[in-house]
């Protein structure tokens, strides 16, 4: 985490607290303040709902307070925290402020670093943020939706994956052309005979086109089906590896259509272009006479 991120996350309600001691016995005292712990933290520390834990905002353990675990929760999956251990706790705001209060800090007790708003109309988020910024210059209001700026990690990763696909498409096109050249060469005499018995160039080319179309559509559909089949395996592996419910690979309808839209014309074009180089020749040349 960079110092910038660190600063921006300082004082948020979701605070990583030092878990300094756990009491194995179940709490009998109902008056103890309650806390929710993340699934990852409870598993790491072998805790159960009802256990009593001591939390402190100080690494030395000073000022620790006892809390009863009221439940466990799954932290909101965040790709930016993919590699982080999600050892987190959620407290009621008054408990949090009490726990993190510094004696000499004159900040008011109800000071918070962030307020989340649920708008009546989420479409108004940008306009609302701008309006609030003008009315209350001390506040920074940011819409919670996905940032689309060019430096957003997800936008950048999308560009990276697109670049990788372009290289793959270039490589496979070269291979496809090489195979088509061979195939055209293999059918040289067949094409010569067809021409000799009266088939026009256009007719032969149409046949090649239709054949290429079938092969390209079949290949594209097979590719999409393969990706769809592997999707689950990829997701399960990465979800296990990073201990997250995040979805890493998703073959959407739009992606499948884009693949087919790129692969089919490319396949057909490769077949037609290589066949055309053959069809341009004289019939006798095709028959090696």
């Amino acid at each position: 985490m960079s110092p910038t991120e660190r600063s921006s996350s300082r004082g948020t309600l979701l605070l990583l607290l030092a878990l300094i001691a756990t009491a194995p016995a179940r709490a009998e005292q109902a008056e103890l303040p309650q806390v929710l712990l993340s699934r990852q933290l409870m598993e790491a520390e072998a805790l159960s709902v009802g256990d009593v834990v001591e939390l402190s905002a100080d690494p030395s353990g000073a000022g620790a307070r006892s809390f009863r675990i009221a439940g466990r929760y799954e932290p909101l999956p965040d790709p930016l925290l993919l590699a982080a251990s999600r050892h987190e706790a959620r407290l009621h705001l008054p408990d949090f402020l009490e726990l993190t209060r510094v004696a000499s800090d004159p900040s008011p007790d109800e000071a918070v670093s962030r307020i989340s708003l649920l708008l009546a109309d989420p479409e108004d988020a940008a306009a609302f943020a701008e309006d609030l910024g003008k009315r209350m210059p001390g506040l920074v209001a940011v819409p919670a939706g996905r940032a689309e700026d060019e430096h957003n990690p997800f936008v950048v990763l999308e560009r990276f994956h697109l670049a990788i696909s372009l290289i793959t498409v270039f490589g496979s096109t070269a291979f496809l052309l090489a195979l088509m050249v061979m195939r055209a060469d293999e059918r040289r005499e067949t094409v010569g005979i067809l021409r000799l018995i009266g088939f026009t160039r256009r007719r032969v080319l149409l046949e090649v086109f239709v054949e290429g179309l079938f092969v390209a559509v079949g290949g594209a559909l097979f590719g999409v089906a393969l990706a769809w089949t592997l999707e689950g395996a990829f997701n399960r592996f990465f979800q296990w590896h990073y201990d997250t419910p995040l979805v890493f690979v998703r073959v959407t309808g739009s992606i499948a259509w884009r693949c087919i839209a790129a692969a089919v014309p490319l396949g057909v074009l490769a077949g037609v272009v290589t066949s055309w180089t053959l069809l341009r020749r004289q019939v006798l040349e095709l028959l090696r006479r």
Binding site: T168, F170, G171, A174, F175, A178, V181, D185
Partner: peptide, 17 residues
């Protein structure tokens, strides 16, 4: 030459990746 050059190009692209 045509098929050889195309095959080399394909291997070069995959190799580069």
């Amino acid at each position: 030459p045509a098929r050889t050059v195309l095959a080399l190009l394909g291997i070069a692209a995959v190799g580069a990746l």
